[in-house]
Write a protein that binds this DNA or RNA. Structure first.
Lengths: 207, 207
DNA sequence: TCGCATACTGTATATAGTTACAGTAGTCCT
DNA sequence: AGGACTACTGTAACTATATACAGTATGCGA
């Protein structure tokens, strides 16, 4: 597939972002206005090339039917909703419809991976992970499933309570390390259920 | 808010589902076809009622601009694109079409405020702000415009170079404080241009 | 049973929007 | 220097869409 010029890419980006922002594709006129073109044909010819190169589709004659197709659409990441489970849920919700407290929507590119059904988010309480620069109130995105590796930050259910800690293996035995000298490390007595490993973090300014 | 009749609700549902399926709103004709109406006015009058009752909006005269407003749409927060300007841009791009390196998409709820045209993001280089728990590689969302207050994290142009620092006022004079003992504070010789104040942060796991 | 709202058919039209044609200027490759 | 390609200005259809106007039928509550 032939590459796009900067201008062509800008057009495609605009179409895609307009769709996201307004829910519908822009018209030729709106594109021209945005880029300051005085002629609609500037748009037309750019779009023709984008179509030829396979980056764009539209239904002939239909209003606002432009849509970005292939690689760009893939580059230009999909928006995914991630459920925010309460900070301290009693148990662990099964797949399906957990009692989400809210939802974060991020695009795949922003968080650097593709969220799946196994991805969820938790609001952090406390400062036990301050050594890893995770603060009280931060929203942590986790993924359930993969076995944690030494040094990864994980959410775990230890003896019935959920915590966010660093997963550390010492002498072949896993335990959970708090990244704050004021907090104790946790050596699980019985059950150590890893709920998810840290994937991303979202923080809002407090002011 | 007055209740909808079954037919009206069906119309609203169709509009919403068409948007989801096709990415754009249906035309009056498409609605008529779907419901088997032979007259467009059947659609028109239903839509008029939906508008009156506040369940629907559209931009007068614009093609495919129907959108369902009420309860559903309000729950779902809007997705907004924020341009990611390069980590160390030479100058500062004006409004309009900055040379964005990419874009982050977030929903209004996730970042806790409504991004505007004056919102942008920068990838952090270096660890000078580690004391504020901002790491190398983090994506920082900033807002241009508001005057910074003492203690806020800001992106500033100091003598030609961009840095991320804490804005501190001492003896009535503003300067920029690095949150890392290894980095020097910056007392601007000449120009101190505040480019934006910290609003949010997005971090990806590195592994 | 009168009035009123919903739920339509049918016709018409202005405007929104797509798309074609004709042409100019600059860049890059050969 | 010429050809291919990008990046535009300008004009002009022609089609798609929204929306107004004029009616008809049916059900429902006062």
């Amino acid at each position: 597939m032939r590459p796009l010029t900067a201008k062509q890419r800008a057009l495609a980006d605009f179409v895609e972002s307009h769709r996201r922002r307004h829910g519908s594709a822009p018209t030729y006129q709106e594109i021209a206005d945005h880029f300051g073109f005085r002629s609609l044909n500037a748009v037309t010819s750019h779009l023709r090339l984008l179509r030829q190169k396979g980056y764009l589709e539209s239904d002939s004659g239909k209003a606002r039917s432009l849509r970005v197709t292939s690689p760009l659409a893939k580059l230009r990441s999909r928006i995914v909703d991630i459920a925010v489970l309460g900070a301290i849920p009693a148990g662990f919700p099964e797949e399906g419809a957990p009692e989400a407290e809210g939802c974060v929507s991020v695009d795949v590119g922003s968080v650097g991976f593709t969220p799946t059904r196994n991805t969820f988010a938790v609001r952090v309480r406390g400062v036990s992970m301050i050594g890893r620069h995770i603060l009280d109130g931060d929203l942590v995105v986790l993924e359930r499933g993969p076995d944690p590796r030494h040094g990864q930050v994980v959410a775990a259910l230890v003896d019935g309570e959920r915590t966010l800690k660093t997963y550390v293996v010492k002498n072949g035995k896993p335990y959970l390390k708090a990244e704050n000298p004021k907090y104790p490390d946790l050596i699980p007595a019985q059950e150590l259920v890893i709920q998810g490993v840290f994937k991303a973090l979202i923080r809002k300014a407090r002011d």
